[in-house]
Amino acid sequence: MNLELCWLLLRRELLVSLRRRSDLANPLFFFLIVCALFPLGLGPSPALLAGMAPGILWIVALLSVLMASDGLFRADFDDGTLEQVLLSPVSLYLTSLLKVLAHWLLSGLPLTLLSPVLALMLHMPPEGIPALLASLGLGTLVLSFIAAIGAALTVGLKRGGVLLSLLVLPLFVPVLIFGSAAVQRAVQGMDSAAPLALLGAMAALFLVVAPLAIAGALRVSHDQ
């Protein structure tokens, strides 16, 4: 019964998101455009770009996750769905967890799948691509959970955007370090298992702990 409930909740989130297609595409275009700005600003030299590509891709991916998460709870908050969820007997922990997972499936995952194309455009050596896929896949999951905490805290406020980045970006630091290190090590021909394992550990930690904070934050935002 519980699994059925999870599936229903997940399906609801996916359906609602899929019906607003442009909201799904916008963070991906953001990722594409900002990555294209770097060669324009730094110069098109392949050697320079290749060296910076892991860092560029990771920082831009991080910013697009941040952008995508800004409105995560806004629609539910505005139209009263959140209130119904709070009143329902289903635990808020579960609904928050599934909401973030659904969000990741439609934002973090496509972004990860798009990243090899951009890696090639930035002349990153192809040896780094498996590590890029693995680190972005795990890393965007962690980032989505952290950003969701911030989004839940700021959902009731009129101007959330800049505030969200102030709250969330310092917490992104470890993910950025391990993620870009994984890609950099792979590019240099070293083993990138250690940073990937650390990212995996963080993903496991936040999968369990973050929904608690999100649920608490949603209650605060709703009460105010």
Binding site: T154, L163, L166, L167, A213, V220, D223, Q224
Partner: peptide
């Protein structure tokens, strides 16, 4: 910044407490 953004100071206190714990 989070504390200052809320008008309701009680909610602001609880929101900051959650953020402090996450930090």
């Amino acid at each position: 910044a989070l504390y200052e953004a809320f008008d309701n100071k009680e909610a602001a206190g609880r929101a900051s407490a959650i953020l402090a714990l996450v930090g």
